[in-house]
Each structure stands twice: as C-alpha cells, then as structure tokens.
Design a protein around this nucleic acid. Structure first.
Lengths: 346, 346
DNA sequence: ATCAGCTTTGCACACGATTGCAGAAATACT
DNA sequence: AGTATTTCTGCAATCGTGTGCAAAGCTGAT
C-alpha cells in the first residue's frame, strides 16, 4: 500500500506538503499542489483511514446492532439507516446480535473498541440485554440510541413504536367486524405498557369480550404455530379470528389453515402485526398494523448524529414514541355466522 | 477514553509493561500482571483497535458489498457470511452498492481506505460494475472474491451458481408436465453462458417447443409484471405456464393472477427462481430452483480467508461453480387441457 | 542593500498501541 | 565478594496522517 511518504519522495517534497496538497490546503503552491494531486491520482493512492482515524480521534462510523436479519423487518430498517447515515456523512458497521451467543454485549464491545462515533442498538424480543455495556460506553462518551422498548429507559435515548395503540386498533377492528371468539398466537408481553398484547387484550376487555384463556397460545417456533392452529380448530367452539403476533407468524398460520382446508377470510379472519412487505405477498393480503418505518429510522439516525455532534438542543435523554396505524386488507371479514346474517338481510 | 498510558500511571509502570500484561506476555512479573489486569477490568479499559490496526497493519475485518437488501436473498446471505466470518475471526463491514449511486466503486474505495483485509463482492443484475476498482485493489494486495457471474472472469476469484442448469431443469419440468405454451417474465440475459434464461430457452428449443416471441416479456418494475400478466392473458392463445425470473417477481404474478380470477396451478402454472423463504410463504407454495445457500457462502468466505492468510494451495484465480436444484412444490401442474384428458382416462 | 511582509516548505510531535533492545534488578553460581 | 545468568522493566522506534511552529524563499518598498 502506497503512503504519503512514498508520494513525497516521488514528488521531491516532504510528507507534510503532500498531506496538505491532498487536503487542498491554501498553504501549498498551486503548481506543486496540482502536481502532487496528479501523482496521487495516477498512482492510485488511497488514504489510510486507520491512520487518519487514529490521528483525528474520530471514525465517521456508526455502529448498527440488529438482532437478526431473517425477519424482513430488519433488512428494511438496515437499508434506511444506511441511507440516512450516508447522507449525514457516516458509514455503517453492522453487527448481528442474535448470531453470536455473546450477543449484544460482544457487539457493543467490538464497536466501542473500533471507536465507532455512535451506536444504534435495535433490541430484540429479549429487550435490552447489554444494559451494563450500554451504560459504560455511554459513560465513556459514545452516544447510544436504542430502538425498541426497554424497561426503565429514563436515562437512555430511545425510539420506539407504541405497539399498545396498534394492538388496541386491531382489537377494535375485529370487534367491529363482529368477532367475539378471538384467538391469539403470540409471546408473553415483553414491552411493558407499550406491548401490543397489552393493548389488544385491554381493548377486548373494554368491549366486554375478554380473551378466553384457551384462546391464548404462546408460540416459540414455527412448529408451535402449526400445532397451535390445529389445537384451536379442535376446540368445541373454535375461534373466528386469529391474531398473529407478527406478520411472519401470520404467514405460517396461512399455510396451516390452508392445510386444514379453511379459507381466509371466509372461514377464518387472520390479522398480523408489523406491516412487512410480506403482508402484501400473502394471499389474501394481510390486515395488519404498522408504522411507516421511514420516519422512525429517520428519527433514529438524526438523534444519534445530533448527539455525536453535540447539536441536539436538549441534553436530557429523549424518548421518541411513534404511533402505528391499522392497515385493513383482505384477510379480515365478519365471522361466518354474522356473514350469513348479513346475507339473509340483504 | 482510557488509554494504556492512563493505566500505566495508575499502576506506576510504563505503558509497555501494561501492554505486555494485557497480552498475557510471560515477560512480566506474575503479580504485576495480575494487578494490571485487575486494574484494566475495573476501569473498563477497551483497547483502541484503531491504534492496534495501524500498528499491526491488519484489521481483521472483511468488507461485504451487497447490491441491496430488500430482496430477501441478500439478508440470508449476509447472515451466513457474518457467521462464517466471525468463526474465522473476522468482523464484517457491510456496504450496500445500489443504495448510493456511486455504487460499487465507492464501496470498494471506502473498504480499501479502511484497510479491510479482504473484500467479498456480490454482484447485482448489472454484473461487475467496478471492474477497474477491483483490479486496482487486488493489485494493491487486498484479496477480492466475487459472488455472481461476471464477464471475462479468468483473472478473478469467484463463486457463482450455474443458473443455466437451473433454467434447464425448470424447462424440463414444465415440458414433462405437458406445457407447450410457456411465458417468461424476466430480464435480458446478463450472466452469459451461466444465465438462467439461456438454459431455460435452450432446453425448450431442444424439446421442440421453442419460446414464442410474444410470450417473452421483459419487465423492469412491479407495475411491468402486472401489465405483463394481463397482456399475456389477452392473447388469442394464452400461456398455460409462466416462468418468473425471480421468486419475488413470482409473488407479484400470484397477486395479479388472483386479481384476474385465475387459480394456481389449476388455471395457470407458475414457477420461480431463487428458492427464497418467500417461496414457501406463497400459497400455493412455489415451484422454483435454488441452491442451498450455505455451501455457497461457506466457499465464498473460506476462499477469501485462505487468500488473506495466503494458505490457499493454488495461487491461480479460482472459479467455484455451484449447481442449483429443482424444487417442486404446489404451483406447477399439468395444463388444463392435459388435466381434463387425464381425468377422462382415469 | 536592507528590511518588512507574504508565501511556501519542512521539522517534529501527536494519536495509541506493539515490540526489539538495552539495561536494571534479582537470583544463582563459583 | 564477584561474576554469570535469569527475570523483569523501560526506552524508543514504528505504523501513516495531520498540524503548529519555525524558518526559508521570495517580493517589493525604502
């Protein structure tokens, strides 16, 4: 690899002059400057960022920690974060926290070691695992912004969706359609007051049709979803609607219902959560809830960048909460009995 | 950020001793070593990788350049590459080449500037755009391995799938089912002798049922797919099977057919290419062609790592070609006329 | 010719780590 | 006690850039 010094001897000047010439400094003679710049171009000189970073004590790099990448939600997010970061003049260092078992802590340690100027941390289902790490790098002066809900986040910058509102809207939608026997395939609430389950169950209770215990199925795997669905169908009074905790689970529900010979939405209403691209690929297209992801990522990145540059007006930790919206597509309809009723009226 | 020197003054020794102690060198007194290590742990010392990289003239980092991330093929690839890289002791620097218009060249320049130890470059539909960049960084001593087909690749290391074989198998499958009026939604061949279109059309011609010109539709956008499908259906003799160039296009074909009131595979056979997870989410599940991605990524990473470490036995450029396989699911069936015939026989 | 003022260049240090080498301290041996 | 040997520690150079400061070169005015 060719260095400043190499160019310097070729041009018959000192490396300082070369450095200044390439930085287009007014301190060097225009002719020399031109000569050096040409030389650099011809020889394919590539500045050594490692050395520059060491000297400047900054890397113009932000770390992005994401749990995984098989759930299509994350790629969309990565793409947008990458775009925003690039626009702000930062490049991205991606780490997958669920991949290695050391998880988040290892990712953050690595980023901190590489002296990333700031860290964007997207939490997975387990919430903020590496709380201590986060505190210590934040204390050491590296700004960290979290995306996703975490407990006791008073002293952290974070961006999150208010999933409870989304769950509530979904519940109202189903209730409005006339569903009363509603099943849930999901996971235990893990986002406190902002959890989608909390909103969903709360709203149903308010409507006077609380969730029945046998209708709530916790699923961990794809297999769990399949058996969950068949179990539901075997109930003496099976549900007329299923709320899948994530769009990706809804996709599995679709397959299983098809296998059981039921059609959506005639025999069963299915709704999801997240509004992935996937939701529109499914047939029928999935009724779901989601935020426009772009304002979310935009807030995410710009808050971090402002923190890095010290330009954010308010030094206190910020909580930016985004409210998702209901998106009605073709997978939800009135329950069959209701449908028949309507039919006979018309 | 706390440095070696800081620890040194706290411990009352020189920074050299601290460095050696943390490296667990036998050259330092066991007690001092212990004391220093404890000190480092308590004070949360994080070695400055930037400085270390400068000194060691190596970064233990490999750059991964991927066109985009909205096609689910790439996230799967990223995940696996990340895993393999981590196992080999390297961390990953991800760049999206279609995101910024400067494209590949800029990504490679950036990686080269950051002194990545090696570069993995996944080409998109446009092939190898940054050929010159690749040559120059390779000449400068940074190994580059390419994934995907590129023209005139004799002097490059690359890993590619032999899509022609896949296209051929797909053609045989359709032909065996009895289809003769077959349509193609795709893009112009861009992978030379390894292109899926080449294999597909070639095999059909061999079978004596060459593709009809009006059945070949080049599509650029999602909108193009939709109009393409409706146009096909308006033909005096519409096709009985559609080959979508990518699984993600097949998903759009599904939607459009549904809108047109046709059912798959009864009224129309649809096949794709890539074998994304998406293919199994669709209903009916999509017949497609794909490689198991994991041997591919494994070869990809281990070739690069071997190049970096100089342990690859053969110094000559390698071309590793992987053959994909046909995966028959529920979206392909004999054409309707044929079906009726069969019915009446049985 | 002298000196002030401006332009241009190079010296030398810094960033934070690693490491060869020399020398100090401790121990072993005669 | 004196020397040889081992063990341990610190000095200083290095990686490649950036930059304050001093000084050299040049111009022009007196």
């Amino acid at each position: 690899m060719i260095t400043l010094e190499d160019l310097a001897v070729q041009a018959g000047v000192s490396h300082s002059t070369v450095s200044r010439a390439l930085a287009d400094s007014p301190l060097v003679n225009p002719q020399t400057k031109e000569r050096i710049q040409n030389l650099a171009r011809e020889s394919g000189y590539q500045v050594n960022q490692v050395a520059r970073n060491l000297k400047s004590r900054t890397t113009k790099t932000i770390g992005l920690v994401v749990p995984e990448v098989s759930n299509p939600f994350y790629p969309e997010l990565i793409q947008q974060v990458a775009d925003h970061a690039r626009l702000a003049g930062y490049s991205l260092q991606l780490h997958l926290s669920a991949a290695d078992q050391e998880s988040e802590s290892a990712c953050i340690a690595s980023l901190s070691g590489n002296r990333a100027d700031g860290i964007l941390l997207v939490t997975g289902e387990r919430g903020l695992v590496a709380r201590n790490q986060v505190n210590s790098v934040a204390a050491a002066g590296t700004p960290v912004v979290i995306m996703g809900w975490v407990q006791d986040a008073e002293h952290l910058d974070l961006v999150a969706g208010d999933d409870a509102v989304g769950g509530r809207e979904l519940a109202h939608h189903l209730s409005d359609l006339g569903h009363t026997r509603i099943a849930v395939l999901g996971k235990a609430p893990h986002r406190g007051a902002l959890d989608r389950m909390v909103g969903f169950t709360g709203a149903l209770t308010e409507r006077g049709t609380p969730l029945l215990p046998e209708m709530v199925i916790e699923v961990a795997s794809e297999e769990g979803v399949r058996t969950g669905v068949t179990d539901l169908l075997k109930l003496p009074e099976p549900p007329t609607a299923i709320f899948a905790y994530q769009d990706s689970l809804a996709a599995v529900v679709y397959r299983q219902l098809e296998k059981e010979g039921l059609s959506i939405p005639d025999d069963m209403t299915v709704v999801g959560f997240d509004n992935l691209d996937l939701a529109t690929y499914l047939s029928p297209q999935l009724t779901t809830v989601g935020t426009h992801i772009s304002p979310l990522t935009s807030a995410f990145v710009s808050l971090l960048v402002a923190r890095i540059q010290g330009t954010y007006p308010d030094p206190a930790p910020q909580s930016i909460i985004v409210t998702p919206k209901l998106i009605v597509r073709s997978s939800s309809a009135p329950p069959r009995s209701q449908l028949n009723l309507t039919d006979s009226i018309s």
